[in-house]
Every structure is written in C-alpha cells, then in structure tokens.
C-alpha cells in the first residue's frame, strides 16, 4: 500500500522494492514478534472489543449489558433518537474544523519551508523556533492560549485594540471567533511538523531542474509552479492525509479551550464520543459513533490518495 503511495524517487532510478532471499521463512516473524504482541494486545484486541461493544447497550459499570444488534448504528441515522442530533452536530463541527484547518496547515508550512530551505546564518535557530510549539502537550497549549485569547485580560485582544481593530472578540465563546481561534492555535502548535516534512522534500528536488528553469528565464513564481510544486506532489498526498486525520481527530483544543462553546458548536466528533462513552457511560453508542467516523475517514483518505495518484498519472 505505502509502496504505491510513496513511490521511491531515487535519482539513480533504483527501485527499493524489498528483495528478501536466503534466511529462514521464520526470520521476518522473529523480527516482527515483539511489535505484533503489543499490537495485538493493545490495538487489535481493543478495536475488535470496541466493535463488539458497539453491538450492545453497554454500560460497563453494570452487570447487565444487553445485545442490541445494530441498534446503536440505526440510532445514528434516526433523527428522533437521543444520539442523532449530538452526533451529527459534532460531525458537522469536525467537518468545519477540518475544512478550515487543513488548507492553512498545508500552505503556511510550505511557505516556511521555502524560506528555511535557503542557507543563511542562524537557519537552524529559526527552524527550531517554528518547530518548538510542536513539542508541547495539548494541555499546555490550550491553557496558554485560553489565557492569551481571554477577551478581557488576554494579550491578543489587547494588541488588536492597540492596532485599532475590534478588541472585544469573544474568541472562546462565539463563532466564528472560536473557529478562528481553534484553527489558529492548531496551526501554531503543529505547523512545525509539516514544515519539516516539506523541507525534507524540497531538499530532494534535483537542482538541475531549477537550473534548467532559470536558463529558460523562468521567474521565481514560475519556478515554484513548474518545478517546486510538481516535485512536491508525491509527498503532498502524505501530508494531506496525515493532516486530514489529525484535524478530524481534534479534541483537546476545543475540550480545554472552548468546552465546545458556544453551546455545542465547537464540540467535535471525538469530543462527543468522549462525552457519550466515558462521561455518560454509554459506550455502545460511543463505539458506534467511532466506527461511523472511522468509516468516513477511510473514505476521505482514499479519495485524497486517488486524487493525487490520478494527477500523477495524467502527468506521466
């Protein structure tokens, strides 16, 4: 799967397809065993268990946990049920956040990578600065920004006021302010990771292509369009998918910064699943929600991959 997603692009055209030979057929499994044990016990078993839970009215504090078949799923598609409204409202919030956050998370890190790829004194320091917030935990990021974005004592509104801009935006209790805040905080926090990946890919674009473009008299912009972007295309699908998944799983920021406010407008799907399953003890409902969300993510990821692959093929 990944072999096709992330094709080898070695300058010598050498294919890195695995070529195992020799050695006992057991060898790969010996290597794999430690990981597979962990993976089975702490991923596969819980996932399968989660599926099983989703078929039950599952309050795990109680001995009685009746089997309900696909009722929990059916409820998610029945507008009069107790889970329909909260779930789809939260899916909508997740959708809004994803649509708003993925483009800046794809574009801004690229701009930073383009600047940082040039060699200049202190470059490492600048790189480190842009990556630094990524090492913080969401708990720290959220409490820090809740403070900065406070519409009364916060720095952000204070400086907006100094600049003559509206200084009374309620960043955590009103939309669209809350969406702007959540997207901005997420970009600030995670931009460094995407930037580093872009940086790596940029370093890999053969210099000859730029030389050739320059000989043809191409402007910087035209070089970007005709050399840089095509050179980045293979990793764009990778960055797009991991960013998409990360955004679709957003939880901590809204949980700790806005508490889903206003109302439940910024309460994302993961947030709702947490509320339903872990606070409300309704793990059957929560599991069903999780798998519907997973299903949507699988479809979206597939679409992204296919879209990028087709473009490549068209080009070829």
């Amino acid at each position: 799967m990944t072999a096709t997603i992330l094709p080898t692009r070695r300058p010598d055209g050498f294919s890195a397809r695995p070529r195992g030979r020799r050695g006992s057929p057991l060898t790969p499994w010996l290597f794999l065993t430690p990981y597979l044990v962990l993976f089975t016990v702490f991923v596969i078993v819980p996932v399968v268990f989660g599926m099983w839970i989703s078929l039950h009215a599952w309050d795990f504090t109680l001995p009685r946990r009746p089997f309900v078949g696909f009722d929990n799923y059916a409820k998610l598609f029945d507008p009069s049920s107790s889970t329909f409204e909260p779930f789809w409202a939260s899916m909508r919030a997740t959708g809004i956040f994803t649509v708003l956050s993925v483009p800046p998370l794809l574009i801004i890190p690229l701009a930073i990578a383009l600047i940082m790829r040039a060699n200049f004194p202190g470059r490492n320091l600048f790189r480190a600065i842009y990556f630094a917030p990524y090492v913080l935990g969401v708990a720290v990021v959220a409490v820090l920004w809740r403070y900065l974005l406070d519409n009364n004592i916060g720095l952000v509104n204070y400086y907006l006021g100094q600049l003559g801009l509206p200084d009374d935006i309620a960043w955590t209790t009103s939309t669209p302010g809350a969406w702007v805040a959540l997207v901005w905080v997420t970009v600030w926090w995670t931009l460094g990771f995407n930037a580093v990946i872009y940086l790596a890919a940029l370093q890999d674009i053969p210099a000859e292509l730029y030389e050739a473009a320059k000989v043809d008299g191409a402007s910087a912009w035209s070089q970007f369009i005709h050399v840089t972007l095509p050179g980045l295309r293979p990793i764009l699908s990778f960055i797009a998918v991991i960013t998409l998944i990360a955004s679709a799983n957003m939880f901590g920021q809204s949980y700790l910064m806005t508490q889903g406010a206003p109302g439940r407008e910024t309460r994302t799907a993961i947030y709702q699943i947490t509320e339903t399953g872990l606070r409300g003890f309704r793990m059957g409902d929560a599991s069903a929600m999780s798998f519907v969300l997973t299903f949507v993510l699988v479809i979206l990821s597939a679409i992204v991959f296919i879209a990028f692959r087709q473009k490549r093929e068209e080009r070829a």
């Binding site: 309050d59 795990f60 504090t61 109680l62 001995p63 949980y255 003890f281 793990m283």
Partner: peptide, 25 residues
C-alpha cells in the same frame, strides 16, 4: 473550571465502568 471537572468525570466513568466489566464487581 468545568473543563477539568468534565475531564475527570469522564475518567471516573470509564474506570468505574471497567471494573465491573472486568468481573470485579
């Protein structure tokens, strides 16, 4: 902070739940 309260209630819920499930009622 409701956030914190909620967070921990969630945790509480899960843990409670789990113990009975695990046959330790």
């Amino acid at each position: 902070s409701t956030a914190r309260r909620r967070l921990f209630s969630i945790a509480a819920g899960t843990a409670t739940a789990a113990l009975v499930l695990a046959g330790c009622g």
